[in-house]
Design a protein around this nucleic acid. Sequence first.
DNA 1: TTGAAAGCGCTAACAT
DNA 2: ATGTTAGCGCTTTCAA
Lengths: 367, 367
Amino acid sequence: MNAIPTVYDVAERSGVSIATVSRVYRSPDSVRAATRERVLAAAGELGYVPSGNARGLASRSTGVLGLCFPDYSDPDTLDAEDDDAAMLYSDQIIRGMERAARRHGYALLIAASLEGGPENLVAQVAGRVDGFAVMARTVPTAELEAISRRRPVVMLAGPRAKDPSLDHLDHVEVANEDGQYELTRHLVHDHGLRHLAYVGLVDESPDVEARFRGFRRACHEAGIEAAAAPALRMPMMTQAEGARAAHLLCEGDGDRPEAFVFANDQMAVGALQALERHGVRVPDDVVVTGFDGIPLSRLVRPALTTVRQPMVRMGEEAVDLLVRRLSGQPPEEPVSLMLPVGVVRRASCGCDEATTPSTATPSTTTG
Amino acid sequence: MNAIPTVYDVAERSGVSIATVSRVYRSPDSVRAATRERVLAAAGELGYVPSGNARGLASRSTGVLGLCFPDYSDPDTLDAEDDDAAMLYSDQIIRGMERAARRHGYALLIAASLEGGPENLVAQVAGRVDGFAVMARTVPTAELEAISRRRPVVMLAGPRAKDPSLDHLDHVEVANEDGQYELTRHLVHDHGLRHLAYVGLVDESPDVEARFRGFRRACHEAGIEAAAAPALRMPMMTQAEGARAAHLLCEGDGDRPEAFVFANDQMAVGALQALERHGVRVPDDVVVTGFDGIPLSRLVRPALTTVRQPMVRMGEEAVDLLVRRLSGQPPEEPVSLMLPVGVVRRASCGCDEATTPSTATPSTTTG
DNA sequence: TTGAAAGCGCTAACAT
DNA sequence: ATGTTAGCGCTTTCAA
């Protein structure tokens, strides 16, 4: 692992100037074929690869896009196998971004921010890319605000209006409110339920709030006395907390809700486990729903009724937005996209179809 | 989006030298608190973030590791939902690498190589990272050989000895041969099958070859006349090809094998579909097995007996290897790791347990 | 078509 | 504790 070869080494070995070496890579046509051959040959022999750093520095652009995402790994998921199944948000967004980035000729730099980790994580990313996407609440607002003044940042799944200092960012979110509204409406309308308990989050989360609004709206419209706040707010949205929520809801005051409407799938899954242990049957005794549409939601029994979010697409949209900003004609105004979601009716709400996927194409009913 | 601020701007604004600005970020303690505050304040107001490029250039290290992987997306998987379920190899490796990289303070740069795409993809990655991992057969050998002479590269899942020009690379693979051997032995020994057909790949793939060796060894040991070559070699390992293979095997010469042993899960899944369409029952009429342990293998019905590869772990090991090479005391010799695999017995071979996962913890029998 | 030279923004001695 | 000063490896005018 000797010194890494540079343009100078290649230039010397092929008897040209460093400018020519550079040209061979940047605009091959501007160099005579014979010269090009010689340079390329020398480069090959030396194992030369242009330094992305130097290139970026000299040309002020890196050809790399970034993504900051929270370290979502659910500590409750100890089983490696479950871990596999629970393909996370971030994986899907990564997939979407990588694909789109590649289409546009960019590479993708990813970094997960561990809770309370070094704040400079963003900086680490921001300093190395032409633009980047941030999953909501991954990055300290102040820091993000400062950075985003100088280079394109798109916010994912987050609070568009929430923070006015960030309202100049492009933004992609999913129709949380509408999705939860549709799902709730399904419970009320199609299943005739009247007594629903919503389980949210202690911390303020724009997504969770929006979902709750959808829930409440559906209740209102059905003439159900909808609480102004969730029945329960948990400190984290993990399986363990979901289980705990199920406990609390059951041991309440004897009069158990007909449905537990969870703000995400992880909690709902935890609840299913807890309920099974307690001999409470789903959906016969109580209906359970989630939100997200993680793969695990389809694997559990009963399969979970939920709202699917198009996360891969979100990644793609994010990249398209960034590329647009980076291009000659960036939109003047900040762009805000709201991607549609779909209610997935499965067994946990009493829709029994598609419970046992047939060979190779486990299908679900989307409504 | 005005000019991006630099150390000079921050220095000027806070009335210090650029060296001090640099110190504030590199070794905060070497700067008086008051000064530090002023610098940080100025930086904040300016929206300053240290340029990763300049940093990398000056310090000759980027703090980034890379991964090149093939664009595995199976074109047969048109359904977005299946796509979700089929968490791919690459996703798992990315997960593993990202985690491990973060533990070591590195970020991760990922780039998929589209078949026949620009070869400079590797260069794009190689030029921006301190070291990187390459999934086998992603990158032209010559290019890789040259690059790997100058910086650490670890080969994933590939042909260790295959290419002598690459035998100086660190290398992580899974026990393909042993895994297929164990699985085959299970079929022969526990299920008493004697007539097995192995379905491989036309192209030479070290992994597939290794698996076939395991298959053959198990046959030999059981006194079964094992063909020197796979019963069938398909051009690609997709679901469509798996279905085609099933056809061919069924319509052979009337005497159908008792088991179809596929070189990967995708093909096996395709075969399951085809067999169902033809009214051939699995496992009653014919046993089907796969290899990989992709999530989809558990979702299909009958659930697929297969061999699970620890891909997340592979990603972690790769990073550990890279970090080791980058550290002060790199091992002298190239390191080669072989990760153990596990046979997963499910319904498609006649092991009926664990076919219907119970709530939240779909379990499988690992043997 | 090719070369010379001036940076790009930062780090790392070396001074002070 | 802070400032000065070379580079780091490349791109990019400007000349030739």
